[in-house]
Amino acid sequence: MNADSVFLINFALHSLILGSAGWGVTLLLRDPLCRSAAAGIALAFCVIGPSVISEWSYPYMGKAPLLTAVRETLETDWRIVVPAVESTTAAKPVTASPVSSPMPKPAWSIDDLVHALRYLFWIGLITLLLRHFWRTARVLRWSLTLRRPNEMEVSSLPSGMDASRLRVFEREGSPCAVGWLRPVIAVPASAFQTLTSTEWRWMMGHEQEHLRMGDTLHSWIQECLRAFLWWNPFAHLLMECHARAREEVCDAAALRHSESRDHRAYADFLLM
């Protein structure tokens, strides 16, 4: 195998191993905040871990990096050369031996397979990145249509609620956090007539926790990682685990910062 094939196989194997180990750790954690942090760290290790491991010292080769030792081993010429030995006995008559035809070259090699998989990787990466950037452009275009709440809408909010980062859209939909550098909370205009004071505090507490932790930017970065690690099933499991854990953290924050901590009523509100 050539050097590129060794590097790609090393990266893929170590990324799968690190991803599976990280996903196993998240299954053992019950606290959602710890689970989301562990999933994020495991995703980072899926990307940078293989390169770090390849620079570790190989235990039997002194201070040579592990990947260098493996590459040198695979590229070594293993042919055995037998030196000619002069015979002291009487020369024997030379008889003609049948000429053997050279062995046919194999139709494909591991390098050819890795080369084909590399093309498949780039096709998946470019396809998912284009889809991600298309969705990003649609979100940016939609965010430009958001407006600030008017005086009547602000006056209908519960007392003491900060509306500086509140934005309104006219169509029906669910409240959400939108934006990356300075995210805001987008709510439908109908919410000012339908939501009660308790429901407003639940909703704002949930979305403000998303803003406080920068979940909108984290989600955008994770979609880039999804495009890069589309072939790693454990990376997809870690992303789903991180998303669910973040929602649990925000739900806990919504109940913690609200006067009403009725879990059943809050669950019914989420299902509305």
Rank of each mutant, 00 (worst) to 15 (best):
N2C: 06
S5C: 06
V6S: 10
L8S: 09
L8K: 12
F11V: 03
H14I: 03
S15M: 05
S20F: 08
G22W: 03
V25L: 15
T26R: 03
L28H: 05
L28M: 08
R30N: 13
P32S: 10
C34I: 01
R35M: 08
A37P: 07
A39Y: 09
A42L: 01
L43Q: 01
L43E: 14
A44W: 10
A44E: 00
E55S: 15
S57P: 04
S57H: 14
G62H: 00
K63W: 05
P65Y: 09
L67E: 09
T73N: 05
R79N: 15
V81S: 11
T88L: 15
T89R: 02
A90N: 00
K92G: 11
K92I: 08
K92F: 04
V94K: 03
V94G: 07
S97K: 14
S100L: 07
P102W: 10
P102Q: 07
P104Y: 09
P104F: 12
P106C: 14
A107V: 06
W108G: 13
S109E: 09
D112G: 10
D112K: 02
A116M: 08
A116W: 11
R118P: 00
F121E: 15
F121C: 01
I123L: 13
I123V: 11
L125R: 02
I126D: 01
T127I: 05
L128C: 02
L130W: 12
R131C: 05
F133T: 08
T136V: 07
T136Y: 15
R138T: 12
R138F: 12
R141W: 09
W142P: 00
L144H: 12
L146G: 02
L146N: 02
L146V: 06
L146S: 00
R148L: 06
P149L: 03
P149V: 03
P149S: 02
M152L: 13
M152S: 14
E153V: 05
S155A: 14
S155M: 05
S155I: 06
S156D: 02
L157P: 04
L157A: 05
M161H: 02
M161Y: 01
S164D: 11
L166M: 08
V168T: 05
V168F: 14
R171E: 14
E172Q: 15
E172I: 14
G179N: 05
G179M: 04
I185Y: 07
I185P: 07
A186H: 14
F192V: 08
Q193R: 07
E199M: 06
E199W: 04
W200A: 01
W202I: 09
M203P: 00
M203N: 02
M203R: 01
G205D: 06
E207L: 07
E209L: 11
M213F: 10
G214W: 04
S219T: 11
W220L: 13
I221C: 11
Q222A: 12
L225A: 01
L225R: 01
L229M: 13
W230I: 14
W231P: 01
F234N: 09
F234M: 14
F234V: 04
F234H: 08
F234R: 04
H236C: 02
L237Y: 12
M239V: 13
E240W: 09
H242D: 12
A243C: 11
A245S: 13
A245D: 07
R246Y: 07
C250P: 05
D251E: 13
D251L: 07
D251H: 09
A252V: 00
A252S: 09
A253M: 09
A253F: 05
L255K: 08
S258C: 12
D262C: 04
H263Y: 06
R264Y: 09
R264A: 10
D268P: 00
F269Y: 04
